[in-house]
Design a protein around this nucleic acid. Structure first.
Lengths: 193, 193, 193, 193
DNA sequence: CATGAATGAGTGTTCATTCAT
DNA sequence: CATGAATGAACACTCATTCAT
């Protein structure tokens, strides 16, 4: 007899932690606060996670995976360049806009000296997939011959930075402006002919 | 009995705090550590500053001012566009590269929800001065008509992000590549004709 | 569906607890550890025992009984004095040497203020039986007229202390040396003539 | 201007810890309890000691030193054998009787698997001094040729064990009986002629 | 001005025990 | 009988801040 799916405590812990960190940062997010927001006891948290850090790492990897998937939404592989790159840019921007907590969390995690491990952007699977999109374009001379980091910073990095400014209410880029900036970013890293 | 004139304690505290935060982050930088590195007593710190946060805010503003000055080095006002913008970009990049601790500090401060105050980039004096450089160019149609934040992110934001990657050893952009990227950034925000 | 008859869970719990306490002490032996080593669930332990302390008390009494039996092995009652006393001394020494976990457990239990109850050595049955061996010898003037505790400490107490040192690898008394020390202990409590 | 010697907090912490451990054991002695009994704050304890373990180790070494000094009281070096050995035995017995908390503390410390370091009795200075008393006697054939641990257990070990029983109220050995047992212990480790 | 001993609320974490399944 | 997820009080320890000297 299948009862209603009981509220998953592990998920509740992750959700509570995400929300709290987005609003208060790693150190402002105490275990006591997670306990209160997740509606579980302190002991229960340690039943599911080894430590506070383990929650954060777990959260990071699941958000990173989700983000990677979102970047490839709308099937950019079937579009010709530069449409595929613009699609990825828009996907990135939209992901951040529609997942503000995840966006703030990622920003903090990747900037934090609190976390010894520097999780090189290059090594994760999402980036690996992106490279299968970008590498051929560089070989074909469509994209300029510059370090990958430069391409990254000037496209997805810009998308993320602008999205965060939009989340913070500093700007309000509408759809056409987003497309325009995406195109500009593409042109910036394209090979001049 | 006159001992050797002590180096300014206030400055010693700020220096120690800067170095510690660059290496350990805000929360890894305890008052006890500042005491040890600055060579002053705990009580003395509270003589010069109201709180730990006050040291950090003070540090932020003095670094921000120093950065603003560095951006305008080489007198960009006397150069024609786009040379003046490229000069500013290179100044920004060089500042970060040659002041890694200040760079890491700024990054942390501006990303940190730990600090309630969102110090709007727009309000500080350095940015105000930059606007006197950029505004006429927008009016003249040299720069594209986009929100100022977009211009900022796509130029100085990119310079900062790349410089930090270089500090971290992820990339090694030489002088010509720096100039090339600076030019690309300029073109990205320039008015297409 | 009848599975293979499980080995007695109660016994598994006691065994696991004994091994763990010998190696880690009372407080290093957590219920979670007992659960893991005994291969039973937490709930099951509380089915067989009222509390962690109850396991320990139970263990103590069963080991004490086993020790008492071991002391009387080789039928010292049928030997003349002082052979019977030497036999008991050797039995004690051998018990500790061949039951190092039980020996360490006893030592901890009897030294521990963690256990409120001071389990007077005098009240247990094993000691009662020994008295039937010792009392007549005192009356006959074979053993010196000293408090029973003195006899105990100078014979079995010494045997236990030396055995524990041997377990710890601090000494290595061979059979003849054991007999020699046993004889010396006997002579120490014997009536001088 | 010299004021009354302020109550030394470091000493207060050590005293409180000693009393608590004697009565409740290592684990029953929580930092909260030490705080309460010593009349200092939690932070203050960590100002003087690195950790709870550090307090305990410190206590152990200072008690061990005190005990060593007490053993040599009454100048046993100027007495002929066996009077010097009997003097040491009586010193040991009296130390334990008159320092019951110290005695209980030592017993627990030296039996505890809680403390990784097995501080071999042999290595400390007190024992070293004792050896200067015992070694010549063994060479002269006054003491039997047995491992040092055997001599130790059969003399000072017996004194300690009996003293603890007396502290616990199990026995009440008067001065003549103490002397008699001391003599018996000496004879037990003496070379038979 | 300067010191550093002292504070105590707050931190992340543990663990014997319970109870719905 | 058996399970193991859940509990929450207790634990050792930290650290920004104060204040008597």
């Amino acid at each position: 007899m299948q009862t209603a799916p009981e509220p998953d405590k592990r998920t509740a812990i992750l959700h509570a932690t995400l929300d709290l960190i987005a609003e208060r940062g790693f150190h402002g997010t105490t275990m006591a606060l997670i306990v209160r927001h997740a509606g579980v006891s302190a002991g229960t948290i340690y039943h599911y996670f080894e430590s506070k850090d383990a929650i954060i790492h777990d959260l990071y990897h699941s958000i990173k995976r989700q983000y990677g998937t979102a970047l490839l939404g709308g099937d950019p592989f079937h579009l010709p360049a530069p449409d595929n790159l613009i699609r990825v840019w828009l996907n990135a921007f939209h992901y951040h806009i529609s997942h503000p907590h995840e966006s703030l969390f990622l920003e903090q995690y990747e900037n934090s000296p609190y976390l010894a491990s520097a999780p090189a952007v290059h090594t994760d699977e999402q980036f690996a997939t992106l490279i299968t999109l970008v590498a051929p374009l560089m070989q074909q001379g469509v994209l300029a011959d510059m370090p990958l980091d430069v391409h990254y910073v000037m496209t997805l990095g810009v998308a993320a930075a602008l999205a965060r400014r939009q989340i913070a209410g500093l700007i309000a880029l509408d759809e056409p402006m987003q497309r325009r900036i995406a195109a500009v970013c593409y042109r910036a890293v394209a090979q001049p002919h």
